[in-house]
Write a protein that binds this DNA or RNA. Structure first.
Length: 514
RNA sequence: GGCCCUAUCGUCUAAUGGUUAGGACAGAAGCUUCUCAAGCUUUAAAUCGGGGUUCGAUUCCCCGUAGGGUCACCA
């Protein structure tokens, strides 16, 4: 890091360090603070981060707040929180002011933009826009009428006025020509001269436009690779013209494929259910799973491996393998991915998470469960088998699939009856027998395997369903639940015997034996 | 509309001139202790269309088609 700072200070800002051997990779994620972070933004940040880390480079978080109109209060904090949750850590960002290149917030860098704007003015490459909004609108309308593309440069003034900082400043693009350039993902790209036009560098309000600010910042921050979505491809000739005007080498362009809506007809936008990434945190997705899945929409290492921890992702990631075509973000597969990561997690961590999730459900309702460390330990594997995401625990609780671990089940006597039995006669017989077997199991052997071993021969001989269904129902009071041996082991001998007794009493009350 | 980009199972994707076009998610069937899960096994499912180049094209070229992006004092 020291060497980077040195490099940044010693470097002549007019000569970009892009591509300089040994200069180190510098990437950035540069969102505008206009709301929450969605999937597309998170993936862009992730790729930039992975590439920097893979190359022992630097990852910068830069806030592009040059549109004061659209800025949403709290966005900057929200973006940082999202990145932190995902484990996408930046080396320089808005949270510190001692960066070698100054602030990472564009509104605090206005001097730099003015300075470079003035340089362009001095070189005769920028000029104040003499037209009013109405005049511009009229030019556009005229071009529309004539069915030709509107180009500002056709209206470029012959004599540039003096820029006083309060007029919009336009860049005088190079003589129209076809531009060709290389993109690390898309390969060789080109565009006709229609793509080239004079564009605004500085707005009337004194703020730079994205088109200008990002280029100046990338230069001053030593950015070597620009990761961004494909909507910027068509602006690239303008950027190239500006790089030329500034006399600098452009960084490497890395164009990311779009993330599409599930009908594949459009880019996934906030209106199409692109969620705030922090929503996934609320639902109990693991950040590693999220990152793993995000990485795989638009990139693949070329192997059949799909589950990666962040460290392996960094090792495997390669911009040469980023896809050209867009892809759909499939939440169902994300859920599967989350389960895979859940299985890889240390069990203590899962226990703590499950405990916290149950407790928050308790707080949100009037449940009063005695959630001891022992019960958390025993039910964790059972829950883990049944969930993909922690939010599934909420569903389990809502559907009363956890109650029987904490309180006596309530159910109707007839529910104890196995579907093939005509009445409760055999149910009672089997329950009594199983109770005897259970009672004989010493405490030292009260575990799932031994309970099963003790009870199995009887169940096997007398009809598994006929024996096990009533037992399981007596223990859980539910049609669907874990198997009776698992339940018994969790509940403990005392509770098991008591619940069987309750079941037998229910049977007797329902159909007293003659 | 001009300019530009993209195109393998429903979805995410592998295969960069030679494979029975592979894997995963979702689906279907089956197995495993009664139920529910989990797990395992099996199965169905794709190279957008048409021309080239080549002994041979998913792969290279051209033309279509479809979809996307962009044409702001938004980023």
């Amino acid at each position: 890091m020291i060497s980077l700072i040195k490099a940044l200070f010693s470097k002549n800002p007019e000569s970009s360090n892009a591509g300089t051997p040994g200069s180190g990779v510098v990437t950035r994620f540069a969102p505008s603070p206009t709301g929450f972070m969605h999937i597309g933004g998170a993936r862009t940040a992730l790729y930039a981060y992975l590439w920097a880390r893979k190359n022992n480079g630097t990852f910068i978080l830069r806030i592009e707040d040059t549109d004061t109109e659209r800025e949403v209060e709290g966005s900057i904090a929200h973006i940082q929180e999202t990145l932190k949750w995902l484990g996408i850590n930046w080396d320089f960002g808005p949270d510190r002011k001692d960066n070698p290149f100054g602030s990472c917030i564009q509104s605090e860098r206005l001097d730099s933009y003015r300075q470079y704007a003035q340089k362009l003015v001095d070189k005769g490459l920028a000029y104040p826009d003499p037209y009013t909004a109405e005049e511009l609108a009229a030019f556009r309308a005229q071009a529309d009428l004539e069915k030709r593309p509107f180009l500002y440069r056709h209206h470029r003034p012959i004599n540039f006025g003096v820029w006083n900082g309060t007029q919009a400043l336009r860049f005088k693009v190079a003589k129209p020509r076809r531009y060709k350039w290389h993109d690390a993902v898309r390969g060789d790209l080109e565009a006709g001269e229609e793509a080239l036009d004079d564009f605004i560098l500085m707005k009337k309000d004194g703020y730079p436009t994205y088109n200008f600010a990002h280029i100046i910042d990338d230069l001053l921050m030593g950015v070597t690779h620009i990761m961004r979505a494909d909507e910027f491809i068509s602006s690239t000739p303008k950027f190239l013209s500006l790089y030329e005007g500034l006399g600098i080498q452009p960084p490497t362009f890395v164009t990311l494929p779009p993330i599409l809506r599930s009908d594949k007809t459009k880019k996934l936008g906030k209106r199409d259910g692109a969620k705030d990434i922090l929503e996934y945190r609320k639902e109990g997705f693991l950040p590693d799973a999220m990152v793993n899945f995000l990485a795989l929409v638009g990139w693949n290492p070329g192997t059949e491996r799909e589950v990666f921890n962040p460290k392996d992702l960094i090792a495997e990631f390669d911009i040469a393998k980023i896809h050209k075509a867009g892809g759909v973000f499939n939440e169902e597969k994300l859920r599967w991915m989350n389960k895979e990561h859940l299985k890889l997690m240390p069990i203590e961590g899962v226990r703590a998470d499950i405990k916290a999730r149950i407790e928050s459900n308790e707080r949100a309702s009037d449940l009063k469960w005695n959630l001891t460390p022992e019960i958390v330990k025993t039910i964790t594997p059972v829950i883990l088998d049944r969930i993909e995401v922690y939010a599934d625990i909420d569903t389990m609780i809502a559907e009363r699939d956890l109650d029987y671990y904490f309180s006596e089940p309530s159910y109707d006597a007839l529910s104890l009856k196995w579907k093939d039995e005509p009445d409760l006669t055999n149910t009672i017989k089997h329950l009594k027998h199983i109770r005897g077997i259970m009672a004989d199991i010493p405490d030292s052997r009260w575990n799932e395997a031994d309970i099963k071993e003790a009870a199995w021969p009887y169940a096997d001989a007398n009809g598994r369903g006929a024996v096990l269904w009533p037992l399981r129902y007596a223990l859980s009071g539910k049609d669907k639940s874990p198997n009776p041996f698992t339940l018994s082991a969790i509940l403990g001998k005392e509770t098991v015997l008591r619940r069987i007794d309750v079941a037998l009493k229910k049977c007797a009350d329902h159909a007293p034996l003659a």
